[in-house]
Every structure is written in structure tokens, then in C-alpha cells.
Amino acid sequence: MPEDQQETVHKFFHDPHLPPGDKPLCIARLLDLVSTPLTKQDIAFLSNLRPFFEHAAETSTDLLNPPDDFHHWLAVPLTTPRKEGVAKVGNNTINARATALSRLYTALRQRGLVRYNPVHDLPRRKPEQSDAKLPSTGELQVLLEELGRKKEPHALALFLLIYRLGFTAQAVFDFRWDDVDFKANTVRRGEIVSRLPADVCGVLLRLRTPDPLLVDPTVRLRRGGEAPNRQGHVFPGLHEVDEVREFLWQATRLGRGTSGGAVVPSRLRLAGLRDAELEGDLTEQARQFGYRDVVAFHKARESARTRLTRLDSEEGR
């Protein structure tokens, strides 16, 4: 980052006349962390940052030079409700705030404005379990057909990796071309090797084949294209794990030709467990869906099969 832009970022952090609630937007624009106009995800990101800037103003804390007890200091902005009538901040909101602040410090570190990310090792809370219903098998088929018709191989590949092979959001983010063996028709996740279903293999081959007309929608042009050190990844435009969820939401939200609306990675993976027709013994089935522990796989599959769907399936009507 040029020195004049670094000075401007410093000014926004330290300007006493700039309201704390306005600082996240000014700084995020300089760091190319938000787009113009702001998306729904940008607004949520900025909202999650505001408690830290407000608490910094109240305590005269310099966020560019966080104190030694920064994790202790963070307890207040992480857990303080921002809406009247809300007595407690849930774990998911606390985690979202921590992730937003970590994303900000990552950008600051990449531009030489801080030496390290002080939130990198901040423990996260246990996510709150949602009783939300799973998408029905019929709805997911509509989504697959719609993604195929729109010729969006990146969205289709991400969808299929989660639904057909049980990829987690972290596994999608970490997925490299070195992990795919097209000759053996296998895919590797750490020590686990799974067979590539024909539809997954087909869409990955399409992504692997150079096509000047194919634009990767995961690449954030406002951030300068591919993220640093992401060459060789199947989804090089994803800058952090949380963007897997965002990209899937964008690809499957209402208005994309679907009847049920957007899905998230965790519930899509459970729906995949519910719908999977796996071959071989239980150990082989578990590895096919990314599990090392056969017992954990069996429990997860049985749990997924008992979950209600958010739309009535054709068979259940």
C-alpha cells in the first residue's frame, strides 16, 4: 500500500472527530474490504466491526497497537448487545464479530500496518445449534439443474463437493488441484482418499481446462483478483473460509430459479448424508464422505435421516 494511503488509514483510526461508527466503513473502503454499492454481506461485516471501534473510543485504545491484554479487552465489544431489549449476544454473533475483526487485521497486516493479527488465536465459541430444517431432495435437484442451466461451474463444483462428497467449508477453502487425481479418479482430503463421482469429476475437469470466457465469480475484483498465496487452489478467489458460506448463499438464494431459497454448507452437507447412496462396507462409505471415524459417520448419517425438511418432498405429500 502506498505511504499516502497508509497515512490515511492511520488518520481514520485516530481521528477524534470521526464518529466511531463511521470508521469501519472508511477504513474498509481503503483496504478494499467492501464493494460499492455495499452488499448485504458488507453491511453485516461493518456492523460486526462497529462494537470494537466504539469500545476503543470509550477506553482510548489504539486498535493499530492493541494492548497486551487484548483478548481480555475484547470481552466487552464481543458480548455487548447493540439492540435495545436484547439481553445477551449469542455465540454465533460473537464468532461473527471475532471473524470480522480478524479479517480486518489480516488486511492491515498484508499492507504492513500491523505486525501481526492479534485475533488469529482468539478461541471461538461453540456454534449454536439451529433447528432449521434441511432442504428437501427435490429442492436440491432444482438447485442442481438451475446451476447447470446457468453454466456456473464454480458454483456447481462447490455445491457438489459439499453435497456429494461431504466437504466442509474449510475443506472447500483448502482444496487444491494437487488433491485431485483425474487418472485414478480420486480426491484427497488429508489422509482420506475418496472416489470422484462422475458429475463432480466432470465439473472439476471443466474448471481445470483453461477457458478465457470463464470468469471465476469467487474472485473479488475489488480486492485485486486472486488472494495472495492461493495459486493452485481450486477456488483461488476465496480469501477466507467464511466466503465459502457467502458464495454458496449467493448461488442458491431466492431469485436464482429455486423454490426454497439459499442453503448453507453445514445443512447442505447433512442433506448429502441423508441422500447419499454409498457403496462398499461402512468404512469405505465413511471415507467416501470424508469421515475417518466410522462410528461418527454412522451417527451423523442416522441423525441426518431423521431431520425434517424445510419443504415437503414429493414422496411425503
Score class of each variant (00 low, 15 high):
Leu268Ala: 05
Arg245Val: 00
Gly237Cys: 10
Leu221Glu: 11
Phe235Met: 02
Leu205Asp: 01
His233Cys: 10
Trp249Ala: 09
Pro210Lys: 05
Arg220Phe: 08
Arg274Tyr: 11
Ala251Ser: 14
Ala276His: 04
Leu214Ala: 11
Ala227Tyr: 15
Pro236Phe: 07
Arg245Trp: 08
Gln231Trp: 02
Pro236Leu: 08
Asn229Ile: 00
Val234Ala: 03
Arg230Met: 12
Leu214Asn: 11
Gly225Asn: 09
Gly260Trp: 01
Asp275Tyr: 04
Leu254Pro: 00
Leu254Arg: 11
Thr258Tyr: 01
Val263Arg: 02
Leu273Met: 03
Arg274Lys: 15
Arg256Gly: 05
Arg208Asn: 15
Gly255Tyr: 12
Gly257Glu: 05
Glu243Met: 14
Glu277Val: 15
Asp216Cys: 04
Leu213Met: 11
Ala251Thr: 07
Ala262Asp: 08
Gln231Tyr: 03
Thr258Lys: 00
Val244Ile: 10
Gly225Glu: 04
Phe235Lys: 01
Glu277Thr: 09
Asn229Trp: 13
Ser259Lys: 11
Ala271Asn: 06
Gly261Asp: 04
Leu238Gly: 01
Val219Thr: 15
Ala251Trp: 10
Thr209His: 09
Glu240Ile: 12
Val264Glu: 12
Glu243Gln: 15
Leu207Gln: 02
Glu240Asp: 13
Pro217Leu: 12
Arg253Met: 11
Pro236Asp: 05
Leu207Arg: 03
Arg206Thr: 14
Ala262Gln: 10
Pro265Ala: 07
Trp249Asn: 12
Leu207Ile: 05
Arg223Leu: 10
Gly257Val: 04
Asp242Arg: 12
Val264Asp: 14
Val234Asn: 01
Pro217Glu: 09
Ser259Gln: 10
Arg206Val: 08
Leu270Gly: 00
Pro212Gln: 13
Arg220His: 13
Pro212Cys: 03
Pro265Ser: 07
Arg274Pro: 02
Gln250Ala: 14
Asp216Lys: 06
Leu221Tyr: 13
Leu221Trp: 14
Leu254Gln: 09
Arg274Gly: 04
Asn229Asp: 12
Asn229Lys: 10
Gly272Ala: 06
Leu214Phe: 07
Pro265Asn: 07
Gly237Asp: 07
Trp249Met: 05
Phe247Gln: 12
Val241Cys: 02
Asp216Thr: 08
Gly232Leu: 06
Val244Cys: 02
Gly255Thr: 08
Leu207Trp: 01
Arg222Ser: 10
Leu221Val: 12
Arg222Ile: 10
Arg222Gln: 15
Ala227Lys: 03
Glu240Arg: 13
Pro236Gln: 08
Gly224Phe: 09
Gly225Arg: 11
Val244Ala: 02
Glu243Thr: 09
Val219Pro: 00
Gly257Pro: 02
Asp275Ile: 01
Thr258Ala: 06
Arg253Lys: 15
Asp216Glu: 13
His239Ile: 02
Glu226His: 12
Arg223Met: 15
